[in-house]
């Protein structure tokens, strides 16, 4: 299929277990952002405000997008 060439462009293997391109890494970062917030609201928010989760997941997201 002709999309193969398009898809392999910009692919790389960072610390994530699979090969990813920029879109994949942003996608993973967004998924983790949501997951962390939901988890936080259920288990941690009584002790620490939700803002901490936002900061944490933004940092995590940045690392994934740049190094993953």
């Amino acid at each position: 299929m002709s999309d193969r060439a398009e898809k392999t462009e910009g692919r790389r293997h960072g610390f994530l277990p699979i090969e990813t391109n920029a879109f994949d890494r942003v996608f993973i970062a967004v998924l983790l952002f949501v997951a962390l917030h939901l988890f936080w609201m259920r288990f941690v928010e009584a002790a620490l405000p939700l803002g901490v989760a936002t900061v944490l997941s933004l940092v995590l997201g940045a690392i994934i997008v740049m190094r993953g």
Binding site: I18, E19, F27, L31, L38
Partner: peptide, 23 residues
């Protein structure tokens, strides 16, 4: 939204498994 989110996560995990194996 949460249902859609969970579907996407699951879908993506299956798909990633599929592609990773092929690579």
């Amino acid at each position: 939204l949460i249902t859609l989110y969970l579907t996407i996560v699951l879908c993506w995990m299956l798909y990633a498994g599929l592609v990773a194996r092929r690579d």
